[in-house]
Amino acid sequence: MAGKPESDYKKLTDEELILLFQKEDVSAFNELVYRYKDRLVNFIFRYTGSREESEDLAQDTFIRLYKSKHLYVEIAKFSTWFYTIALNLTRTFLNKRSKFKTTSISNYYDEEEKDFDLESGGLLPDDIANASNEGDIIQRAINSLNEKFREVIVLRDIQDLDYEEIAKITNLPLGTVKSRINRGRECLKIMLESIHKPKTKK
């Protein structure tokens, strides 16, 4: 099966490639890696905010695809199925990471000193100071978003997937997806305005 030239694989759709890979055609898998590696790394990086972790998670996703290729059914779009794998792996990774993360320092002080609580879902002054350009600021704003909004915003506005596909990937109703996207954008707007306002005032 691996006798096809590379140009033939480039003409094939994702679904055709995965079907070929199910018949032990490794060249089809290589073509899928070539097509999706950048997209996947970008998606995971925007979701996690870490370059190294995004590459590791992208490789994990491809390994999962390699191992469980037989689980793909032709009914669904390949990109939907593949992004679902990536999203689940990233979610579990973030859950594991959040276990080691301290969210509040109020546990170490009295009730009166609760002013030390950090606000969740906002940009820190250090983030703004460390951000070298607007892209970094936006990325930090995305990272500070709630996970529910972040995943749909990344899938819609960065990966450019349609609503229905996002609904299938996140396993949410279409209306919920739309509302979450709107609320996420609203949160981002507020955060970015809060950054730019002091600058304009000065």
Binding site: K37, V41, D157
Partner: peptide, 23 residues
């Protein structure tokens, strides 16, 4: 059409590519 500015900003973000030794 609600938040076109934010959408534009997000789309204009640099696409992160996989490293050379990824494959």
């Amino acid at each position: 059409e609600k938040y076109p500015e934010i959408r534009e900003k997000l789309r204009s973000l640099e696409t992160i590519k996989a490293s050379g030794d990824f494959t």
